[in-house]
Amino acid sequence: MLRAMIRRTLLSVLILFLVAIFVFLATEVLPGDALDVYLSEDDVAVMTEEDIEEMRHDLGLDIPAPIRFFTWLSGAVVGDFGVTIVDQIPIGNIIFHPLLNSLQLGAIITLITMPVAFAIGATAGYWRGQRTDAVVSTTTIIGYSIPDFVIGTVLIIIFAVWIPLFPAVITAYNKAHPMELLAVSLLPAITVIIGHVAHLSRLLRAGFIETMNSDFVERARLSGVPERRIVWRHVLPASVIPTLNAMALYMAGVLSGLIVVEKVFGYPGLGIELIEAVDTREVHVVQAIAFLGAVLVVVMNLLADFAIIALDPRVRSHVSER
């Protein structure tokens, strides 16, 4: 078991290294550079090409890419993502609060989604093939089929403009108190949940059905355990295991959803920071955020693997083979 876990951990490190290379290559091909956005049209109207080249040289934008990559990577390993190009501000300072804010929103979403998805999945799974299943499945598919930005916009119009329960745009500071953000997180959270609960509930439904049909449930039934007890004590816990990996991937889905939703609502998180960093060509910020996102997904995946290895003896041998 330990060998399997070590193997998975080493693989995760390898994957993160590959992600680092990919992110660096992808940001290298971005046209223009930080200076291009930093200079306003007014600046450009009076500067000559030579002036611009000189500034570019002063900022070290003409250093070859491989050198920059290894400088960046050696720092990133110890959590130092370097400084912004034009103003030399540590990246940590820039992304620290947005990271916390996004994690908070992500946590809220996960905390609501899990039980909701569980309830939906189990309901649909229990009455599979029946009317309830059809209604639940249909509804979740429709929810999943409407674009995030449409759901967000409609929620704003209904619950902020027509019925002024929530702020239409979030104007909280990056450094806002967690409680202040919590108060305005509901609409963005619901937007992501509507779009993503379908995935998870369908997985849980499948896991539920699989467990319901398994031998041990059959044995329990034959030995006269009441149906209610079978579902609550045996099927529900067991149906989670086959979906653990997918749940980890679901986190990646939530991250994508957050980017769009943060933009629609103006939530001060990493998504907004990311869109902005891509816009202003702050390559180091993009790298740091992409890398952190990948770390999160990889770690979730690893934890899911650990849990599966620990919980499910059948998988142990399979995972160590992988």
Binding site: I157, V161, A168, V169, T171, G266
Partner: peptide, 18 residues
Amino acid sequence: VVYQQSMGSAMNGFRAKQ
């Protein structure tokens, strides 16, 4: 002064009296 990324969110904020 509050910076808004989109015209739509600025309008919503105005209508919601923010």
